[in-house]
Design a protein around this nucleic acid. Structure first.
Lengths: 166, 166
DNA sequence: TCATACGTTACGAAATCCGCAACCAGCGTA
DNA sequence: TACGCTGGTTGCGGATTTCGTAACGTATGA
């Protein structure tokens, strides 16, 4: 789906405040409220953007976050990714190129919870050859959204630094 | 700050839909709209939760996401974390225990953009001794929120699996 | 005991959202 | 060309939600 300036500016504003009234966004952009409503609906439907509440896990009862690097037997990366994505504790799963094949971030209640996850579930998945765990000590930045470039990459010749919140 | 059931249920509902009317949340919980408004304000003020729009970077013009593992000279981790957190491209920064000291996820326009970041900015930071980059091929899961436990950890004796969306 | 801060409810006014209907432009097709 | 169609946009009420504020109860501490 192709985004225009209106989409980008709507996203940018909603990144700052997900409950910003459509009327205010509209008057900022000089368009009608109905249009903003239509665009937000479309962006949401196309899964380009969504408006959600996000909570700091360390403040709502989870004491342990761990990043697990996983090495997988060639050809099984996709499958393992799908399996670990189904872990309810998984907050982030990405396949990567480099020394490791998968990154998995999990949010656990305590070390016993994590030990159970690692030994009884992760290591039993077909294709997982080794894991490396990194205890997350502190989250310094979690940009819950990404900056919106002024225009698509193709139209931007010179380096552009995306504007991110905080 | 101590959360009660009302806070947790408000967070849970907002995790599903960040624009859900307070009136509807209120009637679900059997409390007044004013109370929901008050709680959301407080949760936001205390930085426990926030309602934001989040966009898929790959759908809004950024083609390259990289996870960078950073080794830092002892004692400088905090400082380096603060420095890299200021990178507008940084979407995630966490200090970790293990083979590496810092994890930095960046969202870039293209490889040239990332090369500039790595060589001209990251490697010039005092205390950075080595880096290891992992190209993010595909994001399989990005839980934009975390499950809310039924009660604080201390009151929960048996294992609890947080309920996550998707 | 009193004062103060905090959490909660209730209520009316203001603002917002929502469901249309209408209109325009572009596009493929007869 | 004319026609019908789809997608994007605006405008307008009515329904709903939010917002400001006053009032009340309950701890808490001086």
């Amino acid at each position: 789906m192709e985004l225009d300036d209106i989409d980008r500016q709507i996203i940018a504003q909603l990144q700052g405040d997900g409950r910003r009234p459509f009327t205010q966004i509209a008057s900022d952009l000089g368009v009608s409220e109905g249009l903003v409503r239509y665009r937000v609906q479309r962006l949401t439907r196309e899964k380009v953007m969504q408006v959600v509440g996000i909570a700091d896990p360390l403040k709502i009862g989870f004491d342990l976050m761990v990043m697990v690097g996983i090495r997988v037997r060639p050809g099984l990366v996709r499958e393992v990714a799908d399996r670990v994505s189904k872990f309810p504790e998984a907050s982030y799963v990405a396949s990567i190129g480099g020394d490791l094949d998968l990154l998995l971030e999990v949010v656990c209640r305590d070390t016993a919870h994590f030990a159970d996850l690692l030994n009884n579930r992760l290591h039993h998945i077909e294709g997982v050859t080794s894991t490396q765990t990194f205890l997350i000590l502190e989250i310094h930045k979690m940009a819950y959204g990404w900056g919106v470039p002024d225009a698509p990459a193709a139209e931007r010749p010179e380096p552009h630094v995306p504007v991110l919140r905080e």
